[in-house]
């Protein structure tokens, strides 16, 4: 097990390095000029050249990348061109918020999705199945910001039940945290619920047909025990696969929800940074995202092994 995890972490690091490298190249070939971005368009040619050298743009790409990488390893992520702040100081609180929101949404949508999927699989063909599947498909087709705006309308404009915006950490004020997060979480999780519900349903339906379920029944176990103890465990493997993929989706999709509810996450910062060619911020964000998503996939792989012993560790 330890060997497995360490080899996967090794792969993860390779992935992150490659991602950061390719992002570096991509950012480099973008049409906007970083010197102008940093110093503004009204500079003289001398100032331009001074700026050019100051940003080390005269050195070859690989060297620049190497310098950036070595600084990062020491903890120095550079200074934002636009905000003139340490990138880490700028990004850290925002990434924490976005990740918190995304991970929480992932948990909620998985929990609810699996539950609904199980219900629809067990009640296949009956009215519960039809209604829930219809609702799931409906929710899957609603974009998150539409839902967000709808909720805003219902809970803030028509009635003043919930606050419109902001974010508080749960240890600061738990009640406020819950109130502020209720709508964004709902909006973000909704589409995830639908796809996980569908996957769970199809996976469970396939497992229910298997011989070992017949064996379980023939042992005289309660149907409920058969479903939860035998069917679910086997059906979960493909659903777990979705975990990493969904998390990536949530991190990206959180942007819309953050925008509507004015949650101080990374969404708007990223859009600005790209428009503005704020290279250090872009790099930092991409690398951090790559790390987070790779971790999610690593967790997925570990979960596989925990759930299904046939997936061996070599």
């Amino acid at each position: 097990m330890v060997k497995y995890i360490s080899s996967r972490i090794g792969q993860m690091l390779v992935t992150v390095v490659l991602v950061s490298f390719f992002t570096y190249i991509l950012v480099d070939i973008m049409p906007k000029d970083p010197v102008y971005a940093l110093y503004g368009p009204n500079i003289t040619q001398e100032e331009y050249e001074a700026g050019y050298r100051a940003l080390d743009l005269d050195k070859p790409l690989l060297v620049r990348y190497g310098m950036w990488a070595s600084k990062v390893l020491r903890g120095d992520w550079g200074t934002s061109y636009k905000h003139h702040m340490q990138v880490w100081k700028l990004l850290a609180p925002k990434i924490a918020v976005t990740l918190y929101l995304s991970v929480l949404s992932a948990i909620v949508s998985f929990a609810v999705g699996i539950l609904l999927g199980a219900v629809t699989a067990v009640k296949r063909g009956k009215w519960q199945d039809t209604v829930l599947t219809f609702l799931a498909n409906l929710c899957a087709s609603l974009p998150s910001f539409v839902v967000a705006l709808g909720l805003l309308y219902l809970f803030c404009i028509r009635s003043q039940l919930l606050p419109t915006s902001g974010f508080t950490w749960p240890w600061v004020d738990f009640g406020k945290h819950v109130r502020q997060l209720a709508m964004p979480l709902f909006a973000l999780s909704l589409s995830g619920v639908a796809s996980i519900c569908r996957q769970t349903r199809s996976s469970m339906l396939e497992v229910i047909r298997q011989d070992y379920i017949r064996t379980a029944r023939s042992k005289g176990l309660r149907e409920r025990v058969v479903i939860v103890g035998h069917v679910m465990r086997n059906a979960l493997v493909p659903v777990i696969t979705l975990l990493g993929n969904r998390l990536a989706y949530f991190i990206g999709g959180a942007m819309f929800v953050e925008n509507v509810f004015s949650i101080p996450g990374t969404g708007s910062l990223m859009v600005q940074s790209i428009n503005f060619m704020d290279v250090p911020v872009i790099q930092a964000f991409v690398v951090l995202s790559a790390v987070v998503i790779s971790l999610a996939y690593l967790v997925t792989d570990i979960l596989y092994v925990a759930v299904d012993p046939r997936i061996s560790l070599d």
Partner: peptide, 15 residues
Amino acid sequence: QYFPEETTRLAAFLN
């Protein structure tokens, strides 16, 4: 306070 979205601003005001 930063409110990028018009609807949210409106809701916040009404709220």
